[in-house]
Design a protein around this nucleic acid. Sequence first.
RNA 1: UGUGGCGUAGCCAAGCGGUAAGGCAUCGCACUGUUAAUGCGACCAUGCGAAGGUUCGAAUCCUUCCGCCACAGCCA
Length: 437
Amino acid sequence: MAHIYINQLSEHVGEEVTLKGWLYNLRSSGKLLFPQLRDGTGIVQCVVFKKSVPEEAWEALKNLGQESALIIKGKVRADERAPGGYEIDVSSAEVVSLAHDYPITPKEHGTEFLMDHRHLWLRSRRQHAILKVRHTVVKAVRDFLDSDGFTLMDAPIFTPAACEGTTTLFEVDYFDEAKAYLTQSGQLYNEATAAAFGKVYCFGPTFRAEKSKTRRHLTEFWMVEPEMAFATLEDVLNLCERFLSYIASRVLEDRKEELKILERDTSKLEAIVSPFPRLHYDEAVRMLHEGHERGELETRFEWGGDFGAPDETYISSKYDRPVMVHHYPAAVKAFYMARDPERPELALGVDVLAPEGYGEVIGGGERATSLEFLQGQIKEHDLPEEAFEWYLDLRRYGSVPHAGFGMGIERCTAWMCGIEHVRETIPFPRMLYRLKP
RNA sequence: UGUGGCGUAGCCAAGCGGUAAGGCAUCGCACUGUUAAUGCGACCAUGCGAAGGUUCGAAUCCUUCCGCCACAGCCA
């Protein structure tokens, strides 16, 4: 009798099968038991009649605690009363291990308690659904880039100095005397690999030691960063549109069940199609001023600054799909950003703001190509010149216009799922005050 | 780091100056279709995040500390 998974039940109706999993819940009614079995691919209700199983099996099943591990043999039956459409008429059951007093009961729990039990919380239906969506987001990212001619070229996690020189980094000992920093972005390395392979991307964990305490921040998060040689800001905008709409369509296609469990309004995801609105920074500022005049924003935004969370939310609330804000003041952007030749005070950068208040999911733009300009920038930003010599080599030997962006996987996943906080979109979140489990 | 809010049993939660409700989980019994099953019974805090203080009396008021949550800054 073959071991099958719960998501394969539809192919085995009428057959005798073996299922292996954990007890999700147990209800009983006299000489009848309804154990719900969870195996990682789904949950199925089983039906046990006292007289159709051996005495020992009945006694064993009757007293099973939540999350006990078991192997069940039985016949698959389509049943309208069952939530998944199928039920198992149990003929025998073997208890692999007994569990008692499982802490996460089918009741409400507080955030702290659940986070302390994250290793168990992952088994619950909602967390399972969220992490399946994450899987699909990652898969879609890779499929899209791979089939679009990008080569995976991962960047190092230990770095000798700050990539962007702005954010706070985690410092670690690197053998004798030397210090290393955990990467905050693969950006600069991408520029090197792009000059070798044309279109590249890196995809890995990223670390930020800022003491951010919001629903949009983790100290360790995953970022995908594509980079293209011979490309401009315009090319990045086009790529963002195709990239995000592909991810949304894949989530809609592959994660129907999970989106239902999460009660996601799928019309919000269906709206994520090209073209996305493109908004010049100047226009965005004008929009914020109007918002202030109408009393919808507390403070009047000053031209020249970076948008705060309420500003981003206001701008994105005007659209049903991601909005791409471009041409930010160079002063608020990274040192390597290319400048607008017409207005050198503006950088050829873009932030993609997701709808529904999810904020910046993508940041990117065109990179500066001139050796002299970058040397000046490095001085101005007080960055250690020798650490950037290799980077400057990229401008000495065959410098070309190139551009790319970075997308936070957790923010994207939270947006796809329609959930409040990014902490649920990664198996074991690392946050300001959370290093365990 | 700042501003608010909150810490009561394994979990959730009421009580807000007069001596710790209720529910879930757990255990037992009943029930051949349960959907967070239900019904009955049992068990469950010399104790209310910690330490001081005020009071005849403190979970409740005050002080300090610890922890968590939300928002802001920074960013993806």
